[in-house]
Amino acid sequence: MDDRERLKLFEQAVLPHLDAAYNLARWLAGNDHDAQDVAQEASLRAFRFFGNFRGENARAWLLTIVRNTFYTWLRKNRPPENTVEIDDETLAIEDASANTEALNPQFADADVVRRAIAELPVEFREVVILREMEGFSYKEIADLADVPIGTVMSRLARARKLLQKQLAAEFNRGAQP
């Protein structure tokens, strides 16, 4: 396969997922400028590693590279942030969601939701994006994030509890005069 062919194949198979790459980078990095940097670098890396791509799931493959690129970038550019070990303490909130009324999406203002997602620790944020926005299975997320399926499940459950708590609090605040 010559270089031109390789580029053509790459443009057909991988570039259609640039939206997904940017979306993940944007949610991980938190702003447009850094997200563009990460997504661009990841796309170029993907092209260089295209030989290793086995033609299975181009979107999952590209997002794996985006994720790795982001963590490389994070180590270089930011002091360790909320990589706090989230343990059962955080889960004292466990039953908070059960006591709140069902959240009606019509009342959940996009900005409020955006803020709630952005406030999640990054390990939680990524599983939420990969599951809810990209629709990946637990297995695919586990492969992508290089963690056991059990970890994916517990992170996802905890992330959802935190989001429900946050959104319920906002909702109640909004409901008060």
Partner: peptide, 20 residues
């Protein structure tokens, strides 16, 4: 029900950032 509505909330198109 809460979980279902959370899932719906997170799937809103306006939360997805398309590549500029």
């Amino acid at each position: 029900r809460n979980l279902q509505s959370l899932k719906k909330t997170l799937k809103q198109d306006s939360l997805y950032f398309n590549a500029p």
